[in-house]
Every structure is written in C-alpha cells, then in structure tokens.
Amino acid sequence: MSIQHFRVALIPFFAAFCLPVFAHPETLVKVKDAEDQLGARVGYIELDLNSGKILESFRPEERFPMMSTFKVLLCGAVLSRVDAGQEQLGRRIHYSQNDLVEYSPVTEKHLTDGMTVRELCSAAITMSDNTAANLLLTTIGGPKELTAFLHNMGDHVTRLDRWEPELNEAIPNDERDTTMPAAMATTLRKLLTGELLTLASRQQLIDWMEADKVAGPLLRSALPAGWFIADKSGAGERGSRGIIAALGPDGKPSRIVVIYTTGSQATMDERNRQIAEIGASLIKHW
C-alpha cells in the first residue's frame, strides 16, 4: 500500500482519535458579512469528516447552483462504474471539434489522439474542462443518470439537468442544476469515506481534487503551510461562485467545507476574496 493510499485508508482512524471539535460562531459572522459585502445569498456548511456531524452552517438547506462543483460527483459516478466493471479508466475516447464547448483548455489539445477516461476526469476536476465533463456525462448516460446515481446514494436534493455550459445559467428560483450545502457536503463525505467506492477509487477521487489547479484564489489562499486540501470550485452566471473541499491540518483532511453564493453584482475577484476570507476565519478558529 502506498503512503497516499495509507493516508486515505486511515482518515477515519486518525479522526477518531482527534480531540473533540467545537464550532466557532466567528466564522458564521464572516459568512454573514460576506453576504453584506456581496449583496447576495451565501450558503455555508462545515462537517466533521469522521462523524458527519454538522459543526457550523448557514442557509444549509437553500438551493444554490452547483456550477462546476458537480464534476466531482460526476467522476465519482464514473469511478463507481469502474468498480462495477462497467468502465475502464484506460479506455480512450475520441471526439471532434464539434464536441468542444466553451472553456476546454485540455480537451482542445487532444482532438487528434483523444483522451482516456482517467485523463478526462483529471481534466474535468483539476482544470474544470467543460468538454471533458460533457464527454464523461455521455459515458454514464447524461445528466439524468448522474441525478439517479445521487438518488441511489441517498441524495434526493442534488440534481443535474443540463450539460456544460448551460448548467451554469443560475436563474433565480430555478431548481435545475442545483444542490443544497448540506446535501453536497453529505454526498461528498460519502464519496470520500464511505463504502460506495473502493479504496482505490476513493484515493483516485481525492487525488484529482488535491491536484486542483484553478481554485488557488479561494480556500487555498488562506491555508497555512502543512495543511491538506482537496477541492473543486465552480463559477456561473449572475454572480455565482462555489467551492467544495476536504481539508485539515497535519497533512490530512478532517472536515468537509461547502460554500456557495449566487445573485451578486460583485466582480469575480471580490467573490473570490470573500470566500478566501471565510476560509481564513475557519482556519483561525479551527
């Protein structure tokens, strides 16, 4: 067993022997301040990774656009098919120029040779490549099948209805392509620590998230040296922004954090800054 596999296998073990965790309302004060600064709703939840206990939450059962955070769930569904012998990570998928959609920095470079399922998941999570996500959605049967996968996990809230990039439209009061912070946090925890996926697939999923290259201005910008984070960000229309993450000190994750916002007129930089400040408060009061 590799060191990384050992780390993920012992996530519940280490967490069980940690000192009790206590909620700190100071972080919620910052979440509410972010709402004021952005002029928009902000949803927040913080779960203990081992027990699933909610440590703090704000608007945990209000719907927010998922945006690209759905790509972690998508690759979880792909990995479940791999575990069941219905898919192979090494299978190569070929596609054409007509398949390319807006923001496809990886797939646009491989029109000639195609990409493997493993490479597509890596591109979808680490670079948020939209064509990679659409190609992977095709392998599982489309958005409705991802929703069905989530329902089978016990998540009857999260739903995907459309493809990239239309799913980022974020129309107010439109339930399409949305989740709730509580539902997303619980589902992410199941994917990373539950028995739904094999140990190898859980490790692969967290490795992809740990290698995320496009979430630097968010929670990662607030992390002290030595902290662990595996995350996936999302951005959408109407001032929408979000991030889902597993993080913790001492090089291992111990909490799940989900943050979503929508309806702001603020710039992307300002949305990023507010999420980073929430992260800084979380870490300060850990």
Results as ranks from 00 to 15, higher is better:
115 M>Y: 03
196 L>H: 15
286 W>F: 05
117 V>W: 01
267 T>S: 13
92 R>Q: 10
157 V>E: 12
92 R>K: 12
174 D>E: 08
191 L>K: 01
278 I>N: 00
65 P>R: 02
274 Q>W: 15
195 E>Q: 13
88 Q>Y: 13
55 L>S: 06
183 A>K: 08
121 C>D: 00
39 G>N: 14
109 K>W: 09
238 R>L: 10
121 C>M: 08
270 E>N: 08
79 L>H: 01
81 R>A: 10
73 L>A: 11
236 G>A: 09
229 I>C: 10
94 H>R: 13
141 G>K: 07
248 G>H: 03
9 A>H: 12
126 T>H: 06
89 L>F: 08
72 V>T: 09
28 L>G: 07
26 E>G: 12
91 R>M: 06
245 A>N: 01
277 E>I: 12
154 G>Q: 09
257 V>Y: 05
64 F>I: 02
97 Q>E: 15
45 I>Y: 09
214 V>L: 07
155 D>M: 01
256 I>P: 00
80 S>L: 11
110 H>E: 07
204 Q>F: 07
143 P>E: 05
165 P>H: 06
55 L>I: 14
203 Q>V: 13
259 I>G: 01
251 G>Q: 11
170 A>Y: 12
69 T>F: 01
29 V>P: 04
253 P>L: 10
278 I>F: 04
154 G>E: 09
252 K>C: 12
52 G>T: 05
53 K>L: 13
211 A>M: 10
81 R>S: 09
142 G>D: 06
21 V>C: 15
230 A>G: 12
180 M>A: 14
58 F>C: 08
204 Q>I: 10
281 S>D: 08
35 E>N: 03
120 L>M: 11
105 P>K: 06
279 G>Q: 02
265 Q>G: 15
183 A>F: 08
102 E>T: 12
183 A>D: 07
221 S>N: 12
186 T>M: 15
220 R>C: 03
193 T>N: 15
142 G>V: 02
256 I>L: 11
25 P>F: 08
256 I>M: 07
267 T>G: 13
76 G>D: 01
278 I>Y: 01
61 E>V: 12
80 S>Y: 15
214 V>K: 08
188 L>Q: 03
125 I>M: 11
30 K>A: 12
36 D>K: 15
97 Q>R: 15
274 Q>G: 09
156 H>C: 13
269 D>I: 13
252 K>H: 14
144 K>R: 14
279 G>E: 02
63 R>P: 07
42 V>K: 00
149 F>E: 07
3 I>V: 07
201 S>P: 03
224 P>W: 03
104 S>V: 04
101 V>L: 08
108 E>D: 11
236 G>P: 00
164 E>N: 00
200 A>I: 11
14 F>V: 11
151 H>L: 13
20 P>F: 03
272 N>F: 02
183 A>G: 07
263 G>T: 05
281 S>M: 11
168 N>M: 06
63 R>F: 06
133 A>I: 00
205 L>C: 03
144 K>Q: 13
149 F>D: 06
245 A>D: 00
278 I>P: 00
60 P>R: 12
227 W>I: 02
254 S>R: 11
139 T>F: 06
42 V>L: 13
214 V>P: 05
252 K>Y: 12
165 P>G: 06
187 T>N: 11
47 L>K: 04
37 Q>E: 14
200 A>H: 15
135 L>V: 10
69 T>C: 05
107 T>N: 03
131 T>A: 10
109 K>M: 15
243 I>A: 04
127 M>L: 11
46 E>S: 15
146 L>S: 01
96 S>T: 13
70 F>M: 14
125 I>D: 01
125 I>G: 01
248 G>L: 00
266 A>W: 06
157 V>K: 15
222 A>E: 13
106 V>K: 07
70 F>E: 02
86 Q>P: 05
72 V>S: 06
18 C>W: 12
145 E>W: 09
15 A>C: 15
245 A>P: 00
264 S>N: 07
120 L>T: 04
208 W>D: 05
31 V>M: 08
55 L>G: 06
44 Y>F: 12
139 T>L: 11
255 R>D: 01
251 G>R: 10
14 F>M: 11
266 A>R: 13
165 P>L: 08
236 G>Y: 01
5 H>N: 10
13 F>L: 13
15 A>H: 08
206 I>H: 08
103 Y>K: 02
190 K>V: 12
102 E>P: 15
245 A>C: 10
159 R>T: 09
229 I>T: 03
157 V>L: 10
241 R>N: 04
22 F>W: 14
83 D>I: 03
45 I>Q: 05
202 R>A: 10
211 A>N: 14
5 H>F: 06
204 Q>S: 12
268 M>N: 07
72 V>R: 00
37 Q>G: 10
87 E>P: 02
200 A>D: 15
135 L>C: 06
136 L>E: 01
154 G>R: 07
136 L>N: 01
270 E>W: 07
3 I>L: 13
129 D>N: 01
244 I>Y: 02
13 F>Y: 11
110 H>W: 08
85 G>Q: 10
180 M>N: 13
276 A>K: 12
195 E>W: 06
65 P>I: 03
172 P>N: 10
143 P>G: 06
192 L>A: 06
283 I>D: 01
57 S>Q: 12
238 R>A: 09
140 I>T: 07
169 E>Q: 13
252 K>D: 09
160 L>G: 04
83 D>M: 03
148 A>Y: 13
29 V>Q: 15
80 S>P: 01
108 E>T: 10
215 A>V: 04
241 R>L: 03
191 L>H: 05
132 A>C: 03
172 P>T: 12
57 S>K: 12
69 T>D: 00
18 C>K: 02
219 L>V: 10
13 F>G: 07
74 L>P: 01
178 T>H: 02
191 L>N: 03
226 G>K: 10
237 E>K: 13
26 E>R: 07
226 G>W: 06
233 S>F: 01
227 W>E: 01
4 Q>H: 14
19 L>Q: 15
89 L>E: 06
110 H>D: 05
175 E>G: 10
239 G>Q: 03
63 R>V: 08
11 I>N: 05
9 A>C: 11
167 L>K: 02
255 R>E: 03
191 L>G: 02
172 P>W: 09
157 V>N: 14
187 T>V: 08
205 L>N: 01
92 R>I: 14
253 P>K: 08
275 I>A: 02
252 K>E: 14
218 L>H: 03
228 F>N: 06
16 A>V: 15
246 A>Y: 12
137 L>Q: 05
19 L>S: 15
210 E>P: 00
94 H>A: 11
63 R>L: 09
250 D>A: 13
254 S>Y: 10
215 A>K: 05
30 K>L: 12
4 Q>C: 11
137 L>P: 00
135 L>Q: 07
88 Q>R: 12
147 T>D: 09
168 N>G: 11
230 A>T: 02
201 S>W: 03
271 R>G: 08
213 K>Y: 09
11 I>H: 05
139 T>G: 10
272 N>I: 03
90 G>F: 10
219 L>G: 03
230 A>S: 06
281 S>I: 14
96 S>A: 12
268 M>C: 05
8 V>S: 15
21 V>T: 10
247 L>Q: 02
70 F>T: 06
11 I>S: 07
233 S>H: 01
207 D>Q: 13
202 R>Q: 15
68 S>D: 00
187 T>I: 08
242 G>N: 03
32 K>Y: 09
239 G>A: 04
11 I>R: 05
62 E>V: 08
54 I>R: 09
223 L>T: 13
82 V>Y: 07
231 D>K: 04
55 L>N: 08
223 L>M: 11
200 A>M: 11
57 S>C: 09
267 T>V: 09
241 R>Q: 04
237 E>D: 13
199 L>R: 12
258 V>D: 01
108 E>R: 11
235 A>F: 02
249 P>F: 05
245 A>E: 00
240 S>R: 02
116 T>S: 10
277 E>M: 10
100 L>A: 04
